[in-house]
Amino acid sequence: MIDIRGLTKTYAGGFEALKNVSLSINKSEIFALLGPNGAGKTTLINIVCGITRLTRGKVLVDGHDIISDFRLTRAKIGLVPQEMPTESFETVWNTCRFSRGLFGKPASPEYLEKVLKWLSLWDKKDTKSLELSGGMKRRVLIAKALAHQPEILFLDEPTAGVDVELRQDMWNVVKALRGEGVTVILTTHYIEEAEQLADRVGVINHGEIILVEEKEKLMREMGKKQLMLHLYEQLDSVPQSLSKYDLELTDNRQALVYNYDTKGEHTGITDLISDLRDAEIRFNDLQTSQSSLEDIFVDLVRKA
């Protein structure tokens, strides 16, 4: 659906925000673009949407060039920006109607009604934006972005600063959009959000794409699994007889942490427990945990 090839953006001051970025986004998928502040996420989105000019490279949307065929490409895209710019003195209905017209669609009160009802904004349709709460303003921005029935929706940190309940609502909206065939590109600081929603994950840092992978595969391949054994008695150090295992002693010396590979043929847990018994190390509890997407993300960014 979106094909980005060798995209570079150098700002007037010489700062290179994007460095030869290549990325393909499939139709009807939810793609989460993760990266720390200043990584280039918003610049990338702004270029595809036509707000920022590219320095080098090519961007195709549904096979059309974003510069020579800008009318075709922009009509397919809706954008919910990171900030919450709203026309303070305009009503929700008028501002959505404006967005639809701006993107070249004839008036459709029925469709706008459907969108506003779907986003729980129908009872606020005659309310001015400045009288709305932050969460409601965020919904208005989504309604505006959907007003022209886009095939692609960019959500630039859509749940930043919204409460948990609203975030959950937003997630449901995004899932429903995917169900209707809309391609969703999401940037977020909440890795949990990407973990919940995304089909694929891309990580960008210092203007470079570090990784693009299916979320499930990424978590399977890069996720670590740990077994924590809570000991009866403190240990001074990991005994020599257990050195063949990837074991760490916690700071309070009250637990042993065993890192193991879930993909391996043998996890080594049975052998470890047997060897612990031989070494007369007793434990009174054990637990396993798997690293989250956040752990993977932090690890990737640190390495980069």
């Binding site: 036509g50 922009r74 009509a75 710019p85 709203t86 967005s99 701006l102 993107f103 070249g104 505006k144």
Partner: peptide, 14 residues
């Protein structure tokens, strides 16, 4: 000033 110009800049308009 308000930032709403993004919408005009990203619209399919000449």
């Amino acid at each position: 000033f308000t930032g709403t110009i993004f919408e005009v800049l990203s619209a399919p308009v000449s």
